[in-house]
């Protein structure tokens, strides 16, 4: 019987990104996580910034003035992009993680066709959907900038 512990070999946080076979779903997983963190950070600040409307028009104008201009416009667009992806991919995840869109269990016959293949069209579909939402948002942002 083995008594001593072996040498630790967990991949660590790098393993969230790398390792395995680097399938499309691994990138979506990573991007979902990053956009989620970005959206949360923005959202927490957003609660504080927009609550200024409770104190009247001057407070609102001052609060909006603090977060207007160049870098904030870009940041806002990034938030919109993160929303477009996170929401679209979220729809896929809700379907997939509740066992829909992944097909029924099958007899594994080589070459194996897994649930990952079953939901791949959906994964590509959500990327197209995210792209369309992003394009609409991009047009809207550019239209504002040109005014």
């Amino acid at each position: 019987m083995l008594d001593n512990k072996g040498h630790p070999n967990r991949l660590g946080v790098w393993g969230w990104l790398g390792g395995g076979t680097w399938g499309l779903e691994r990138y979506l997983y990573t991007l979902h996580r990053l956009t989620g963190l970005g959206l949360l950070l923005y959202f927490l600040l957003h609660i504080v910034v927009t609550s200024a409307r409770a104190f009247g028009p001057e407070a609102w104008a001052a609060s909006m003035g603090r977060v207007s201009g160049g870098v904030f416009v870009l940041g806002e667009f990034l938030v919109f992009a993160a929303f477009a992806f996170h929401a679209s991919n979220g729809v896929r995840l809700i379907l997939v993680e509740l066992g829909f869109a992944i097909g029924n269990p099958i007899e594994p016959i080589y070459p194996y066709r897994t649930s990952v293949h079953e939901q791949r069209p959906l994964a590509l579909g959500i990327l197209v959907l995210a792209g369309l939402v992003l394009a609409a948002g991009g047009y809207n942002f550019l239209a504002h900038l040109s005014h």
């Binding site: 806002e76 919109f80 929303f83 929401a87 979220g90 729809v91 609409a136 948002g137 047009y139 809207n140 942002f141 239209a143 504002h144």
Partner: peptide, 18 residues
């Protein structure tokens, strides 16, 4: 819930010209 309400919020705030 977020999908519905944030979708509406984003449409109002960031797709206003469209």
């Amino acid at each position: 819930v977020i999908l519905v309400f944030l979708g509406l919020h984003m449409t109002i705030m960031h797709l206003d010209i469209i």
